[in-house]
Design a binder for these strands. Structure first.
Lengths: 209, 209
DNA sequence: TCTGGATGTTGACCATGTCAACATTGACCC
DNA sequence: GGGTCAATGTTGACATGGTCAACATCCAGA
């Protein structure tokens, strides 16, 4: 029997690996980390419980693939924002990229948390490690246009880079866990919080003025 | 038979709740979040598998108790640092408290992560919520001595507060997940990173100088 | 056409969270 | 002292889930 264009495979799935990652991502988004189940992902892909082991050594390896794809998506989101503000002033670019970063995180909370979970660790999954660094790289580019032109260099850049990333990452953490004072969150939309954070970052908090 | 001072209880444990929290904390520190097991904690306490259910409605409730106690410890660490620098300049106090905060997190990585995990959520466990806010409060106090004297007030304070906390929280996140460039981490000890972050926070990054 | 490796399936094992039914204890009251 | 009850533990069981070994099926290349 010839296959229709989108043939249901009789025995072999055809693209099980991708299907499993998609299913696991859906589980994660819908039911949180506890909802991610190897057996469930297999069921969603219409495949037996042990089939995933042909593509992933363990549940953790599947989660690593999910996290890796999420880091790539985050990077893309940042890059889109950077391109959209290509000619603008450094401060504007930074705001744009930072906003994209936070929006991604708030839009996919469970995924963002998985990316930073203790397991899977990048150390154990080189591809995950690489895509994580890639996301950081996209953020760094937004900062590179700041001081001296050309490729960012020197201690100052590294300093700015890690402080900025830390601030964004921490802001996301506080927002996701609803740790900020209620009234603040209710009154100020996330985008405004990001802008405030970036302004404080640029100008400092010392001059209370 | 009369009980010796540290009698092994025949049937009733005596302080099972506390013992379970301690056992779960030990599991967490030693083997990470996946190592935490209700049955394992019960075993460690020398008690049957179902006994914990007399004290905790679920595994999650036990974890909430662990997180709650961790937040209290974090708060204490910050307060000790604040008291130790009671009369010092605001910048010195901030550095001290921030360092204490990060040291706690790096010293108890698994616990710190649990405190910020999606589950248990503070929303579901009032005591956890309270102790989390308490930790934030301790941090806020270090900032209160900054601008106007007296109880911190107004929008400016909230702004400083959430930006500072975000920065610290994010820095911890990057450090715990080894997301910062290798050479930076290897060259610069955590305490110095914290000081740098706080300096950038005070002075801003705009003047590349 | 044959054949081997890649990919799936079946059936099992074991650990774990959770619950219902039952046992034991100690404190309080007469 | 003796009785009673709520708190606290225990036993046995169930369902779910990660994982593996043994077996089945399929596709690609010699």
């Amino acid at each position: 029997m010839p296959r229709s264009p989108r043939a249901r495979r009789a025995y072999h799935h055809g693209d099980l690996r991708r299907a499993l990652v998609a299913a696991a991502t859906a589980q994660l988004d819908r039911q949180g980390p506890l909802g991610v189940t190897l057996r469930g992902a297999a069921r969603a892909a219409g495949v037996s419980q042990a089939a995933p082991y042909r593509h992933f050594a363990s549940k953790e390896a599947l989660l690593a693939a999910v996290a890796e794809s999420a880091f790539r998506a985050l990077r893309r989101a940042c890059e889109v924002a950077a391109r959209a503000t290509a000619g603008a002033a450094p401060a504007v670019r930074l705001d744009a990229v930072a906003t994209a970063y936070v929006r991604f995180a708030l839009g996919h909370p469970a995924r963002y948390r998985l990316m930073w979970a203790p397991r899977p660790r990048g150390r154990d999954y080189p591809d995950l490690q690489a895509s994580a660094s890639g996301a950081g790289f996209a953020l760094g580019e937004a900062l590179a246009s700041w001081g001296a032109p050309g490729p960012a260099s020197g201690e100052r850049f590294v300093e700015r880079f890690f402080v900025t990333w830390s601030l964004l990452h921490g802001l996301v953490g506080l927002l996701l866990d609803e740790q900020l004072p209620r009234d603040v969150v209710r009154r100020v939309p996330p985008d405004a919080l990001v802008r405030t954070a970036m302004r404080v970052l640029r100008e400092g908090i010392l001059p209370v003025s």
